[in-house]
Design a protein around this nucleic acid. Structure first.
Length: 590
RNA sequence: CGGGGCGUAGCGCAGUCUGGUAGCGCAUCUGCUUUGGGAGCAGGGGGUCGGAGGUUCAAGUCCUCUCGCCCCGACCA
């Protein structure tokens, strides 16, 4: 590609819409253009990188026994109604009607569609296991798109689904996917971590997230440096040690006026006490029933833990009216003292509290000097609070660290959630009917690109891993109007093209500085320069993006040098993959 | 959905408080000079000031409504 003909518009200034490095650089480098919030044009350079990521994913999925297909993006409501997710997906789903007023949703994930395919075709246990996947544009009307293509409303995703006769068989594929996912990210040069996660509205059992540690990430993960325990913030448990002796109960409880003071922040100022001296009393609707959940004032309640502790399907904060009905007081003044007719569940820490302040279940009133066990009891103690940095590992009791991360992929054991509701069954050897056991596995393909830039950049621009770079090398005559330089560069350019190297020739008649800046911004892994110095010495200056000083290579060896370097670098990334494969045994399906 | 901020040329911004002929930098076009890290000079083009209504002799500026975008939070297959 000649840069004089390339559709490329780089920006010198930081676009006002962008905040995180990958978003800024994708716009500045002319890869990305916003069409609407969370909706982007992928311009030629971005598209080349995306296609490379896709290809890596495709190769690894095929190697792990997957078969690629393509499902529609426009999906009929009936299928979603069958699984119950037409409601569950709520406003996250883009919806439309056809001319006959029939309801459709734009695909945000395809469990329903694939389950429909399988139930209409698979009859026998002999056809299982089966692994199908697609790489396709997904649509999600995110409440808040952010970070450019990191969290977009339209994005490219690989979604894979597996079908089994048993949980044991699902395990085999799950492990194979775990490995295939690791391979994908290693080849993309991404140093990922795997964490336990909650399956949320996907339903199902075990699941893992593949995370790229990054400041720009939206998720927090908890990691134990000693035993390797890792979990996302939703799932992260911790070791709770009850103190051996607690201070004695203090003065008797007293009601005090707290006019209009209802948040912990305001109470801290009003009563001049620490946040940890308060008890947060949250009223939840748990599968239709109201429950009071207690955590210390400085803690956040983890709804996933609450849901699990109560063995419930759904937990949601109660409405102000429900709170009033349950406690007799308005929102912001709930407390456990004297609270009757409602189940109370508390975080373990609550039992340590003495002389705490709580809501009095009436307007503008709080109670102080409250002690657990003396002034109130609870129905149940459980781990309800969110883990924080410094909590101890639930397995080995070592201190854990917290780190931000970008979710690159997610694998789930679904079980029979969809096969039950949509009646996808197979016949076993005895001719008996059973629901098919399912797994599902997603990778954010476009997110691989933003993540790679998030990790691979410096003050001058992008530093692509060889495996994702839109082009491997830029050949640059330093002064295009100089005939020797132009013809030297042209020759190298043609040599490289002939040898199948993805090359651009910066033949634009611009000042050298502009071309250098663009080359750095666009992040080509290799820059081959033919300038005055090179011509004098009969060589080509070769500079590795992100590397040290350029190296002068004899002109007749330059193409070899570049070809070798690219091969070595791609081999290195592939080598990470095979090296890790040897470390662990795993079973490959297919 | 709650809180905060912003919409003025393709991009980045000033002008809005205090109403009076719409500006700057970058980009772009023409010419000349220049050429190893975002050149210089000269000349040119480009705007329904997000939209609608109102106040006023006069609105980018004041008032009302509305749309869009960004950030924090809630949410997140």
């Amino acid at each position: 590609m000649r840069m004089s003909r390339m559709f490329l518009h780089t920006l010198k200034e930081v676009p006002q819409e962008a905040e995180i490095p990958s978003h800024i650089l994708m716009i500045r480098s002319g890869m990305l253009m916003k069409v609407a919030s969370g909706i982007y044009d992928y311009l030629p350079l971005a598209w080349r990188a995306i296609r490379k990521a896709e290809q890596i994913v495709r190769e690894e999925m095929d190697a792990a026994g997957g078969q690629e297909l393509l499902m529609p993006a426009i999906t009929p409501a009936e299928l979603w109604v069958e699984s119950g997710r037409w409601e569950v997906m709520g406003e996250n789903m883009f919806r439309l009607k056809d001319r006959h007023k029939r309801d459709f949703g734009l695909g945000m994930t395809h469990e329903e569609i694939i389950t429909d395919i399988v139930r209409r075709s698979v009859r026998s246990y002999r056809e299982l296991p089966l692994i199908l996947y697609q790489i396709q544009t997904k649509f999600r009307d995110e409440p808040r798109p952010r970070g450019g293509i990191n969290r977009a409303r339209e994005f490219i995703m690989k979604d894979m689904y597996s079908f089994h006769i048993s949980w044991e068989d699902l395990d085999v594929t799950y492990k194979a996917m775990y490995r295939a996912y690791s391979n994908v990210f290693l080849r993309a040069g991404l140093d990922f971590k795997v964490v336990e996660a909650d399956s949320g509205t996907m339903g199902g059992d075990e699941c893992h997230e593949f995370m790229l540690p990054s400041e720009s990430g939206e998720d927090t993960m908890f990691l134990c440096g000693k035993c390797g325990y890792s979990a996302n913030s939703e799932m992260a448990r911790f070791h709770y040690q009850k103190p051996d002796d607690l201070p004695p109960h203090g003065d008797p409880i007293v009601e005090i006026d707290t006019p209009g003071v209802s948040t912990i922040d305001d109470l801290v100022k009003f009563l001049k006490r620490k946040p940890s001296d308060f008890i947060k009393c949250l009223i939840y609707r748990v599968d239709g029933e109201l429950v009071a959940a207690l955590v210390r004032g400085d803690r956040d309640l983890n709804e996933t833990k609450l849901r699990k502790a109560l063995g419930a399907k759904e937990v949601e904060l109660a409405t102000p009216r429900e709170i009033e009905k349950a406690t007799g007081g308005p929102l912001g003044f709930s407390g456990p003292v004297g609270l009757k007719g409602i189940k109370i569940i508390a975080d373990y820490e609550i039992q340590e509290l003495r002389n705490a302040a709580v809501g009095a279940n009436k307007a503008d009133t709080h109670i102080i000097n409250v002690s657990f066990g003396r002034d109130f009891e609870v129905d149940e103690l459980a781990e309800l609070r969110q883990a924080v940095e410094g909590d101890c590992c639930p397995r080995c009791h070592e201190k854990m660290t917290a780190e931000r991360g970008i979710e690159l992929g997610h694998i789930f054991k679904l079980g029979t959630k969809y096969s039950d509701s949509m009646k996808a069954t197979y016949l076993d050897e005895k001719g008996e009917d059973h629901p098919i056991i399912m797994g599902c596995y997603g990778i954010g393909v476009t997110r691989i690109i933003s993540a790679a830039i998030e990790k691979g950049h410096d003050k001058d621009g992008i530093i692509w891993p060889m495996s994702l770079a839109p082009y491997h090398v830029v050949v640059m005559p330093v002064v295009s109007s100089n005939e020797d330089q132009a013809s030297g560069a042209e020759k190298l350019y043609r040599d490289l093209l002939e040898r199948g190297i993805e090359t651009v020739l910066d033949d634009r008649d611009l000042r050298p500085g502009v071309k250098f800046k663009d080359a750095d911004l666009l992040g080509f892994p290799i820059r081959a320069m033919v300038g005055e110095r090179a011509i004098e010495q009969g060589g080509v200056e070769i500079k590795i993006r992100g590397g040290e000083k350029p190296e002068m290579v004899p002109a007749d060896k330059a193409a070899d040098y570049i070809v070798d370097y690219i091969k070595k670098e791609l081999d290195r990334l592939n080598g990470l993959r095979t090296a890790q494969e040897k470390e662990e045994e795993y079973v490959r399906v297919g």
